[in-house]
Simulated assay, not measured.
Amino acid sequence: MSYITSFFDNYFLLIDAMSIYIMVGLLFAGILKQLVPDDFVSKNLGTDSTGSIIKATIFGIPLPVCSCSVIPIAQGLRKEGASKGAVQSFLISTPITGVDSILATFSFFGLIFTIFRVLSSIIIAIAVGLVQNFLEKESIKKEKTSLKPMFSTTGTSTTSLNSFTPKPTNTSSDSSCGCSSKNEKKSFSIKKVFSYAYVTLFEDMVKALFIGLLLGAAFTTFIPKEYSSLLFENQILTYFVILLFAIPLYTCATASLPIAAAFMIQGMSAGAAFIFLTAGPATSAVTMSVVYKMLGRTSLIVYVSTIAILSLVFGFLFDSIFDKLEILNLSHHMDELSILNRTASILMLLLMFYYLLIPYFSKKSSCCSSETSCCSSSSEV
């Protein structure tokens, strides 16, 4: 019985620590969605230049998109002609440095860790894009070099070789993308702000968030510190174990925070938590399969290996520089809870259970309606 009580105490402790920041972050995300034009990103990422990578990274920072919904957007950008490097940079920076994720990171780990996470994520995103575009240009050069003997020295060779250079495809008029080709200026709508924030975005992340909170509370409650400290004693070993655990795990940037907090309560270093929070959202099994299908095997190797290496480097740097800094803020939250915090926690819980129970009741109602129709059809016979 004491374990159950402790589990729920830890569960609500995690919710109280992040609820106000998530609710406010989602609101900002909804406002940004109204202010940023729908085609603003796709218009600026069409070349293989360094500028397109930096733009993709910067554009991804404020955009109101979580780890769950960034994948279809990245696919759309690629179809509209964005370079491989720009797409990869966008995939990394967007979910990790979203408004809701930044505020939730601050709620758990404080200002220094949050700034470090944002800046290092930007560097990682740019580095992945630069490596990808460099290798892409090298492979194109090799193709051209190997094809030269096949052509004569006439003026037709240049034209033939140009056909091997990938060109961006303009699919803005393609109805399959679900976007309007007209550049209509959208009017600001408060209703759409709340609808996007607390319906579209929250529904996207609710399952991952719920599971993340459960796992965080479970790790804190049921794993004895004596056992977990054995793993966390060896700092370098911890880095690699956490990296291997995080890479295939499908969790969004915000939902991974309570799990990282639980690991730190058990004695894990802040640098290892950084590795988990960087590699987890950026390299899930789902994201890796999409990168492989969309960009190819070489791009996937570049994507995963660069993220893994730089995550380890930045994790080690954080522990080396800030090893004596107290990062985790959870110990003080229970005493400092305000009415606003408690209200945000209640609202977030209500929204979570609402969106988690909707599929169950909708299936049940559809079954009932189908049974009714069947009954009515049988009675007619």
Rank of each mutant, 00 (worst) to 15 (best):
T5E: 12
T5I: 09
S6F: 02
D9L: 13
Y11K: 06
L14D: 06
L14F: 10
L14M: 12
I15W: 02
I15H: 00
M18K: 07
L26W: 07
L26A: 10
L32R: 08
L35A: 06
N44L: 10
I53H: 01
T57P: 04
I61W: 03
P62N: 02
L63M: 11
C66N: 01
C68H: 00
I73R: 05
G76H: 13
R78S: 11
G81E: 01
A82N: 04
K84L: 03
A86E: 01
A86M: 01
V87P: 03
P95G: 11
I96P: 01
G98K: 07
T105M: 09
F108D: 10
F108N: 12
F113G: 03
T114Y: 12
I115A: 10
L119A: 15
S120E: 04
I123C: 01
I126A: 02
L130S: 05
V131W: 05
E136N: 07
K137D: 13
K137V: 10
S146W: 08
L147P: 09
S152Y: 04
S152T: 07
S152F: 04
T154W: 06
G155D: 14
T158S: 15
L161M: 13
N162A: 15
F164P: 00
T165G: 08
K167A: 12
P168Q: 11
T169E: 15
D174C: 09
S176C: 13
C177Q: 15
K185L: 14
K192N: 15
V193R: 05
F194K: 07
A197N: 02
Y198F: 15
V199H: 12
L201T: 14
F202T: 07
M205I: 15
A208E: 07
A208G: 11
F210W: 06
G212W: 00
L213W: 00
L214C: 13
G216R: 03
A217K: 11
T221E: 10
E226T: 13
Y227G: 08
Y227S: 14
S229T: 14
L230R: 13
L231T: 12
T238A: 13
Y239Q: 08
Y239K: 06
L243E: 01
L243I: 01
F245Y: 11
I247K: 09
T254F: 06
L257S: 09
P258F: 03
I259W: 01
F263M: 12
F263E: 03
A270S: 09
A270T: 05
F274N: 00
L277Q: 08
T278K: 02
T278M: 14
A279P: 02
V286I: 14
T287F: 02
M288K: 07
M288Q: 13
Y292K: 15
K293Y: 01
K293H: 11
G296A: 10
R297P: 03
V302Y: 09
V302Q: 12
I307D: 02
F314T: 04
F322C: 08
K324C: 11
L328H: 10
N329C: 05
S331F: 08
H332L: 08
H332I: 07
M334L: 14
D335S: 12
E336H: 13
L337T: 08
L337K: 06
N341M: 04
N341A: 03
T343W: 07
A344V: 04
S345P: 00
S345Q: 04
L347K: 03
L350I: 12
F353G: 12
Y354C: 09
Y354E: 10
Y355K: 06
I358W: 07
K363D: 14
K364L: 09
S365R: 13
S370E: 13
C374E: 14
C375V: 06
S377C: 10
S378I: 12
V381E: 11
